[in-house]
């Protein structure tokens, strides 16, 4: 984690010893580049927001206007009228909260078991967990569709959530973290007569907060953005999640109403954007950290 903590630290350049004039020139260049990069990421976002609040005929007007003559919410109401985005939102919310919560709980329990409890052949089981990291999700679609069909769970929340619940990545990450915890604390807890579940809940988890939060945030982002699985497993409009709802809107209304589509897009993006703003330290450090550590 220490390498990552430094991410938020302001660093000075390696070129600290250069003459000031040269340095200023270089700084100017890097500001220009930074500005350029910012534009590359901001302009499409601006383009989206602009269309979402522009009256429809202004979107199709040439030459373009850089700002709506009168910002409007009509695109949002049009999107809501064309497709039940409130329902999509609830579906996404439910699938994301239930899916992510259960996933993290399962990962924590499994990681605890692997870190602190004995079991014959435990090493092999853990290798099995690691192996699952190498199974690409796309390869599992056909058979998981079949399995969910046979369980009678097509077009149900359980059907959307179930295949994603098993957590190999979270288990791996948390186990590594649990193993690094100071043994003394856990031994003291044991002397106090704490059961394993209490040890997990009151000692191990609080001491592993950053790791747990990272695993949870990644789970939330994955669930919310998941695309192909909900697309396959849901049939009816009222079971669609937000991303599938957006595709549905694009297909059913055609590409002839960009204002409405951009309004809907904005609705999908916003929750994750807010989450990202509030938890960016955990997300960036967690995701990059999970990467660097390997």
């Amino acid at each position: 984690m220490s390498a990552l903590a430094s991410l938020t630290r302001e660093t000075t350049t390696a070129a600290g010893g250069r003459p000031p004039a040269k340095r200023r020139k270089r700084h100017l260049a890097s500001y220009l580049l930074l500005g350029l990069i910012a534009l590359v990421f901001l302009v499409p976002a601006y383009w989206m927001v602009l269309a979402a609040i522009k009256p429809n005929d202004e979107i199709y007007q040439w030459p373009f206007t850089p700002w709506p003559s009168e910002p409007t919410t009509e695109n949002f109401s049009a999107a809501l009228a064309a497709a039940p985005f409130d329902q999509f939102f609830m579906n996404s919310l439910l699938v994301t909260t239930v899916g992510a919560t259960v996933k993290v709980a399962l990962a924590a329990l499994t990681a605890y078991a692997f870190a602190f409890l004995p079991f014959p052949g435990k090493k092999w089981l853990f290798l099995g967990v690691l192996g699952a990291l190498m199974v690409p999700g796309h390869v599992t679609l056909l058979l998981n569709y079949s399995t969910i069909s046979n369980l009678g769970l097509i077009n149900t929340y359980a059907g959307i959530i179930l295949p994603g619940l098993g957590s190999a990545f979270g288990t791996f990450l948390l186990r590594q973290h649990f193993m690094g915890l100071p043994k003394e604390v856990l031994e003291a807890a044991e002397l106090d007569g704490a059961g394993h579940l209490r040890k997990l809940w009151s000692f191990v988890l609080p001491m592993s907060k950053p790791a747990v939060i990272t695993v949870a945030l990644i789970a939330v982002i994955d669930e919310w953005n998941d695309f192909i699985w909900p697309l396959l497993v849901t049939n009816t409009l009222d079971m669609r999640t937000m991303p599938i709802g957006l595709m549905f809107l694009k297909q059913s209304e055609g590409l002839d109403d960009w204002g409405m589509i951009m309004a809907a897009t904005l609705m999908i993006v916003l929750p994750m954007l807010l989450l990202f703003l509030f938890a960016q330290k955990y997300i960036i450090n967690g995701m990059a950290g999970a990467a660097v550590r390997r």
Binding site: S146, S149, G152, I154, N235
Partner: peptide
């Protein structure tokens, strides 16, 4: 096409 795809999948899922 969309109805066709989901109908075939639905016949598979017995729904």
């Amino acid at each position: 096409d969309g109805v066709g795809e989901k109908l075939t999948a639905g016949l598979r899922a017995k729904q």
